[in-house]
Design a protein around this nucleic acid. Structure first.
Lengths: 245, 245
DNA sequence: CGGAGAGTTGAGAAACCTCAAAGCAGGTGG
DNA sequence: CCACCTGCTTTGAGGTTTCTCAACTCTCCG
């Protein structure tokens, strides 16, 4: 078993190969830092935390102190409606950032749960803010990270507001595929870490509809599905599904 | 006809009475600034822009240079899907901020259109960023503003993903009511500035469904509606509509 | 081997959409 | 000042999608 290295701004360069064009790199590896700045960054993000599958990273109402960058693993974030309904707001994989919604109120606005064994780096927000005041490049990258989250949410609003079940699911699978391939994994074969219910909640449909739509996609030769194992067989046709109507 | 005063950090205090607990105050009136800081802020936000009803503030793909704070008027933002479908992502009124989605790519990710004659203050983003690097309170407030936008979007995702037409419309009306009353207007009587189609797009339903649902609310004595004029007659029952099921 | 959680499939119901027609309001030009 | 036009809104009827409820299967663990 391999020893886990502490995360530093230095060895984050290695992560880069794994995460590709991800928020982690954007946040932690702004270009043009000098040695001292990198050292300061190192001290900022040296703290880690491990989660077992099913364990919460934080819960709604918890006091906000830190952002988290996923080092490995997979999480979901969700908000609870008063009557118990659950809306999944996102799935996070290696290199992505959690907790940005908490800045506004100093308390977390959603729950974050590990869907498999997961390791995150903790980024104390006070320190990040102080540091970004002195390193303009870091500040810029942090702002872009926040803004990217806004754009992501708006994309999801478009999906929820104006697509039908088939289009939503196709868009979802293609998005997963893209993010996995960015990280060096296969773009066409992967394991879903979440349940049909999680997918349904994220996409605004019932788990039965998710299941039926997957079966239909399979019948039409778009993909092969067995439980959580997915193989995308016709990326091109999936793509046309998301844009035509 | 009254002369329009230039917006300054000083006279923004007046706006405060009008906007209440709004983003403008959060962004532009952080507590604890000294005279010099206020003067610097003044220079930052002194530029204004007027829009006629129907005019665009910016369009998707435009180069991003500035955020905008609404001084008076009403706008909608929307993203266009490839096939021409339009998803309204928000309605902005006095004191609210537009353009934060553009930070991530340096280009605007949506269109912003004035729904009535409107005046905005332009906040050059480079200057804001520089300044927020030197005034921690401003930085903090700016981050909160960005984060609040993320939370807002997630609330809308919950609405789109897990509510039915009736609940969505009730939530929408109550949200408008709240924001208007924050600004000193009546919480129960107001004019809708947008069309049924805009509302439908925002809430993920067709304009006919919006119209029918409004009519049903009227039959049930929840509100009175005539065209764009709305009178909320039973706020309490509207509220229960949004949380029960 | 048994249980529990997860997934699939079917049938009927409900919500919402589509298409169509008609009414209304506000602005424009004669 | 009125008639008209245009865009917005309302309402109806019928169709489609998605949901609900229910039964059954599968898979993974203990």
């Amino acid at each position: 078993m391999q020893a886990i290295q502490p995360i530093t701004a230095h060895n984050l360069r290695d992560l880069r190969a794994v995460c590709g064009n991800c928020s982690m790199r954007e946040l932690c590896l702004p270009v043009g830092l000098d040695q001292q700045e990198i050292a300061t960054l190192d001290s900022l993000i040296s703290s880690r935390r491990r989660l077992q599958r099913g364990e919460a990273l934080y819960r709604t109402g918890d006091v906000f102190t830190s952002l988290y960058a996923v080092r490995r693993g997979f999480l979901k974030t969700y908000v609870l409606h008063e009557d118990g309904r659950e809306q999944v707001t996102g799935f996070q994989m290696t290199g992505e950032i959690l907790g940005m919604d908490a800045i506004s109120t100093d308390r977390h606005a959603c729950d974050a749960l590990a869907l498999e064994d997961t390791e995150v780096c903790e980024v104390p927000f006070d320190a990040l803010e102080r540091l970004s005041g002195t390193i303009p490049t870091l500040q810029r990258h942090f702002h872009k990270t926040l803004s990217r989250e806004i754009v992501r949410d708006q994309g999801l609003m478009l999906l929820l507001g104006s697509m039908r079940a088939e289009e939503r699911l196709a868009a979802f699978l293609l998005n997963l595929s893209q993010r996995l391939s960015d990280r060096g994994y296969s773009r066409s074969e992967f394991h879903l870490r979440m349940t049909r219910e999680d997918i349904g909640s994220y996409l605004g449909m019932k788990l039965e509809t998710v299941s039926r739509t997957l079966s239909r996609f399979q019948d039409e030769g778009l993909l092969a599905v067995q439980g959580k194992a997915i193989q995308l067989l016709d990326l091109e046709r999936l793509r046309t599904l998301t844009s035509c109507r």
